[in-house]
Design a protein around this nucleic acid. Sequence first.
DNA 1: AATGAATGAGCCTTCATTCAT
DNA 2: GATGAATGAAGGCTCATTCAT
Lengths: 214, 214, 214, 214
Amino acid sequence: MAPHSSAPHDPDAAPSARAESQRERILDAAQRCFIARGFHAATVSDIATEAGISQGLMYRYFDNKRAMILALIERQLQSDQQSMRRNPLSADIVENLLAIHQLWTRGESIAGVDAAIASVALYAEITAEAQRDPVVADVLQRHDRLTTQTVCDWLRQHDLARGAAIDEAGLQRRTLLMRTVVEGLAMRAVRDPDIAPQTVRAMLAGAMAQVLND
Amino acid sequence: MAPHSSAPHDPDAAPSARAESQRERILDAAQRCFIARGFHAATVSDIATEAGISQGLMYRYFDNKRAMILALIERQLQSDQQSMRRNPLSADIVENLLAIHQLWTRGESIAGVDAAIASVALYAEITAEAQRDPVVADVLQRHDRLTTQTVCDWLRQHDLARGAAIDEAGLQRRTLLMRTVVEGLAMRAVRDPDIAPQTVRAMLAGAMAQVLND
Amino acid sequence: MAPHSSAPHDPDAAPSARAESQRERILDAAQRCFIARGFHAATVSDIATEAGISQGLMYRYFDNKRAMILALIERQLQSDQQSMRRNPLSADIVENLLAIHQLWTRGESIAGVDAAIASVALYAEITAEAQRDPVVADVLQRHDRLTTQTVCDWLRQHDLARGAAIDEAGLQRRTLLMRTVVEGLAMRAVRDPDIAPQTVRAMLAGAMAQVLND
Amino acid sequence: MAPHSSAPHDPDAAPSARAESQRERILDAAQRCFIARGFHAATVSDIATEAGISQGLMYRYFDNKRAMILALIERQLQSDQQSMRRNPLSADIVENLLAIHQLWTRGESIAGVDAAIASVALYAEITAEAQRDPVVADVLQRHDRLTTQTVCDWLRQHDLARGAAIDEAGLQRRTLLMRTVVEGLAMRAVRDPDIAPQTVRAMLAGAMAQVLND
DNA sequence: AATGAATGAGCCTTCATTCAT
DNA sequence: GATGAATGAAGGCTCATTCAT
């Protein structure tokens, strides 16, 4: 019908660059609102205002509020994965996590930092949602396995580099420990923001020793 | 107005036993609803039905919905603490956590089990709320420190029992590790419910070794 | 739970007298609004205002707007049937229809008159809805057959009274003619309200002669 | 602005052939949508899609949705009249009506058939609208009288052809009967689609005998 | 103490209409 | 002429809260 442009409401067509950037603007706004108020308390009106567009227009880009939530979750998971992939294991891992812990502690949303968890509030809310919404649970699990694979590959490379024998069961154990400690630390940062940094550093040093050298 | 009992709406009077048990019933119902649907999606009507009372009556026990949420959070934190206090460190700690991990994995609400986290969804939602609501954050932090103290005392007792030297910095590090691993594992259980149990056991064995024996 | 009263929102309980009278008030208001503006143009807010209650309260008595429409249609059909049943065939049938035609012509809603069609606008709108909504179509057809039976029985009694032989095919033909003329006349009354009464009377006389005496 | 053609948005200019054909396309689409969903439930977007043009463009041909409805009603009435004029009274009138009744019964829109009522749903909705909107009522009545005149002329010709004396009052009576039966039958077709065809034929035979031979 | 009817604010969503291109 | 992005005003509906009984 209109050969030179494909509207966002035409599901068969690839979205135009403008449409894509609008979606991103909306998702950015949604992210801020969801972090600030939560998935259910944030209103479509909030998001529209934050995005600087009218409420009605949002429905050209998303079928409904739930679709916004799902799209945001999907985007968040993909961004998390990319962060993990870009951020190789290093000797500085303890110091890196320590720095990120400080940001979590301040409740700031982390942009430009390669953190697997950009906002603890969003991470927690997505997790809660996964226990209620099977669609969210599925998306989450699919991404989770990719991330686990990424971490596992890291460790395998690390072992090869240091000439250690490859032990698959051990790799999985250490991957799980790595992820558990990171995510647990995020929760700790919110629930008691005043832990002494040296305690965190010592804990991380011990745990990362197991991750990297066992 | 009610000559034979001090009504719960009289703030100056000590709540009667009956009033106290009503509050408990309501909070029990609220807990089930909040776990199933979340703080904001659960309606007052849901909770009233679940508690088997009328909507209007709830407002004799709680000023409003927010007060219910706060009371539930408070109660949850106290119950978590009691679990921790009742559940001393033992050689079975790995197997205990493994069993709880299975329950988390199934998304079941844990009753009668001495788990620090009765429902991961509720735990996550409370954490998210803490990053938005300073009142929640304060309550959370106050309880958190008590719990940290409880765990720390455990470990001190454990060290005394095995004749180890007492190292305060080490105790704090191991306490943090303990809590981080438990809370991280709860999140892992939701985000990827299909991790192999032997992997979890191996990870826990390694981490708990550091907690108990370092 | 409450043994002495059954709330309208409890689907298992028989509605209380109060609830029933509220439903009637709402349906009365809905009828006025639907006649004045149509099923789809009339708003729930219109109806609430007309009924003198709040919007929210309507949803204690009807699940949604569609349920109101369906309930009104059902009530209308039942009332039509009762009119037919109360209003036996008589020598005055021509004059009766003539009088009703005058009311139709003025677009007035007919109350207290035993007219099969109380409001032509409502009758037309229900008919239109039947061609779109299978549920409405079903309800309509079910009632229609009862009404047809009622008219058919009238005519049979009439024939017996005048000593005529009973001819089933003929009864059905005359029943159909009777109903067709009545409903057709209703439409005529709206589409050209200025037909001369003597023309209507003459037409009815001829048609009713066939209905009553063939 | 458009030097080579008189644009439809210029009210002083005669509409170009192109503009006229666009209007027809839009009205065709509108008719399909209105039949399927009703005046108020059909959206401008529906109609635009059905017509294969953009929403914005429709506003170059019609001021607003109401203007579309009015134009469609006007066109419908004209087309009905032409059908009546093209379709002279004949011995087959009973069989013709019987065939049309079948189409009404199936809820199909009748195209290419010389039926006075192309769609019962549309006919009913227009009738309902006439009782609300004086503009519609006026247009309807004006057309109605022309149609009545057309039918009346038919019958006069018929009488002349068979050598009967011309009786003006009788002509009006028979015209009214004719129209009443046709429109009443349309309603019957929707409200009880399962009437036996032989019953319809017998009823029509009797009524048309009065129309043609009295 | 207890009920549940009643309210009204506000939410998600739709849609007629406008406007920049 | 033509598009479709954008707007804003409702509309249907929900729900926390209040109140008469």
